Simulated scan of single mutants.
Amino acid sequence: MEDLILQGKLKAGEKLPPEREMAKEFGISRPVIHEGILILENRGLVTLRPRHGIVVNDYRKEATLDLLLSLINNSDHKLSPNLAKDLENFRIYMEKGIVIRICENKNKESDNKGLKYLKEINKQMLKAEKAEDLAELDFQFHLGLGLLSTNTLFALLVNTLKPAHMDLLTRFYASEKIKNQVVGYHNELIKALSERDLETALIMIEKTDSYSTYGSYND
């Protein structure tokens, strides 16, 4: 049912059949159907209306974080190209906010520790060879950025989206040519942050986070 709603085969405002009919159609018990409907409601996909039945929501307006977690944690789901692009754009704009916070921070001593950690990750990336290891190190680099912002929600959001990013990053690092380019962008970003050069830092976030900037990845 979730797939049908997300694929647009069940439209917003459409009324679902009664639970007893769905139980018969799917060949499972009515209590199981009811439990599934409650899960869909919790994810913001449907609304149970007294005397009106089950109505499909516009998930773009009603869906909750539970739906996103379902999409990225369920092995039966692969991110659609549109959702993957949305995830990429979301990270770009979120991390632009992160570097603004870092550049505005007056506690350079604290930042120096964080930037030193990012440099160490870059060194490890140069030594790593497996796509899975590079994906994990890349994720830790961006988590380190979130922690540097001193805004707890940034780091929590980065962690929440980890499964989706890891899937994309592992495929991304299947190309051996990518690693050095990423590390180069990372180093330029670190330099800009250490110098509080916000303009350059924002440009480097755009380059680092946009898969389209990596020619060989798209070939």
Rank of each mutant, 00 (worst) to 15 (best):
D66M: 14
N57F: 06
K96Y: 08
D58W: 02
I92L: 09
P81I: 04
V99W: 02
D58S: 02
D58A: 07
R60P: 02
Y93H: 15
N89R: 05
T64N: 03
R60I: 08
S75Q: 10
R51W: 09
L87E: 06
L71H: 03
L83I: 15
I54R: 10
V55A: 06
I92R: 05
L67Y: 02
L79W: 00
N74E: 13
D58K: 05
R101N: 12
N89G: 04
S70D: 14
I98K: 06
L87D: 05
R51G: 07
H77D: 14
N57H: 10
S75C: 08
I100K: 13
L65Q: 14
N89V: 01
N74P: 09
N73D: 12
D66P: 06
K61H: 09
A63E: 02
R101K: 14
R101G: 08
L68D: 08
L79Q: 00
S70C: 14
Y59V: 02
N73Y: 14
L87F: 11
S70P: 08
L69S: 03
E95F: 06
M94N: 10
E95W: 05
S70Q: 15
A84M: 05
G53T: 10
Y59D: 01
D86Q: 00
I100L: 11
L79H: 03
A63G: 04
N73M: 13
M94C: 12
L69W: 08
N74G: 08
F90E: 11
I92V: 07
R101M: 13
K78C: 11
K61T: 08
R91E: 07
V56E: 00
S80E: 08
I54E: 05
L65A: 15
K85H: 09
I100G: 04
M94D: 06
K61C: 08
T64A: 05
P81T: 05
E95L: 10
H77M: 13
I72G: 01
L83R: 15
L71I: 09
I72P: 00
K61Y: 09
R91P: 00
S75R: 12
D86N: 02
K78A: 09
L67F: 04
R51A: 13
L83K: 11
Y93N: 15
K85F: 11
L69A: 13
N82H: 13
S75Y: 08
L67T: 03
D76N: 15
G53I: 07
A63N: 03
N82T: 13
D58V: 02
Y59P: 04
S75P: 12
I72M: 02
R51P: 03
E88N: 01
E88P: 01
S75V: 10
L67V: 03
G53Q: 14
R91Q: 14
N74Q: 11
I92D: 02
K78R: 13
N57W: 06
L79D: 01
I92T: 07
T64M: 05
L68K: 11
Y59K: 04
R101F: 10
N57I: 05
I98Y: 03
I102M: 05
L79E: 00
